[in-house]
Design a protein around this nucleic acid. Sequence first.
DNA 1: TTTTTTCTCGCATAAATATGCGATTTGTCC
DNA 2: GGACAAATCGCATATTTATGCGAGAAAAAA
Lengths: 210, 210
Amino acid sequence: MIEIGIVEDNIKIRNLIQKYLEMQDEMSCKIAVDSVEEMLDHLKESASPDVLLMDIQLPGMSGIEGISIIKKEYPDIEIIMLTIYHDSHKIFDSLCAGASGYLLKHTSLPEIKESIDLLVRGGAPMSPQIARKVIQHFKQPEPKKNPDSNLTLREQDIVNGLVDGLSYKLIADRFDISIDTVRAHIRNIYKKLHVNSKAEVIAKSLRGEI
Amino acid sequence: MIEIGIVEDNIKIRNLIQKYLEMQDEMSCKIAVDSVEEMLDHLKESASPDVLLMDIQLPGMSGIEGISIIKKEYPDIEIIMLTIYHDSHKIFDSLCAGASGYLLKHTSLPEIKESIDLLVRGGAPMSPQIARKVIQHFKQPEPKKNPDSNLTLREQDIVNGLVDGLSYKLIADRFDISIDTVRAHIRNIYKKLHVNSKAEVIAKSLRGEI
DNA sequence: TTTTTTCTCGCATAAATATGCGATTTGTCC
DNA sequence: GGACAAATCGCATATTTATGCGAGAAAAAA
């Protein structure tokens, strides 16, 4: 028997889902509340459900904050977001916070049931549009490397020194060269990268633009 | 009519899928080859398919290398990986290279068809186990934030200015404050972060350690 | 072999940064 | 009302950076 909890402030939707899930043989949905705070109260007193369906827009604490807190206290509870938001930020914030699935609210009741089944079998329920956004997140936008920014090995050494937060003097020590040589390299690096400060070199480097 | 191409070196599997897809009313699968190189030859001469099903382990160029090349030349072709590999590296390499879906080879023929439909409708077909791995990738292992490095809003503004490569003067201009105030904030930031140069602040920030 | 890179070093100087000490104002918390 | 954090500003100074110009030696490319 899969124990399911619901956090959803729209009472109609909440009751609808609860009733539907209760009708399933292998599912039970006893806890259905309208805020994260209430759910936390419940969790303290009674046994934890296996799966939580959670909205994002909620009175009080948002669903995304809720994920973090619940996951920290009860890491075994699997959380599926069920929301109208399909903007990338909310999706990624939810997944980063520890959600295991992300459904849009137009998902039908049988599909919700299917998703819960999928989840307990080790899958990750996602609406197709959501999956698309998640995947797009991986695509490298453009390896926008500056073509004529090919640094020599020594120059890369120097850049690494800068990224490590070293001063010219310390870089000189590290590679056993004079500080004026460091200056010379840095001059050339700036030319190649079209910048004129350490700050920009470090930023470019850590952004993978070198 | 959806035009589909297959790159798969196991001739049995290839023929099976091709025949099945050809049987579908709204699908056509004329091009079925056993290497990326062959597919590239085909693409040069005839019209591009809408969707490619591609294996990873192939004679000659690997499927993952293939994605990059094909996507660069023909960015409109959607690629679904169809492979036995379910290790995270291969999955992420594929998605980063530009694949729009990732199925495991035990996927049934009707499911493959469904996946293609899903793809052209803007979704992203993935086996549930794959989706799970993708999602796990988002979970932050540990936000190793320095506990007593909580910067105030203004201090965060200043840090952003530094990351953008601005000088004190320009930061002062951006927020319409005096350069001495910028100095004051930076002093406090350095104290909180236990550093003593712009470089280190930028590095920390871009590494997500603030 | 000649030319071009790459790496090395030096001197000089204007600009920017790091850091010391001190001060006023505006909130918020108790 | 008093304590305290946050944001603002000023002045002074030692250190570091940024950038100009020049140059020699070794290695790689032509």
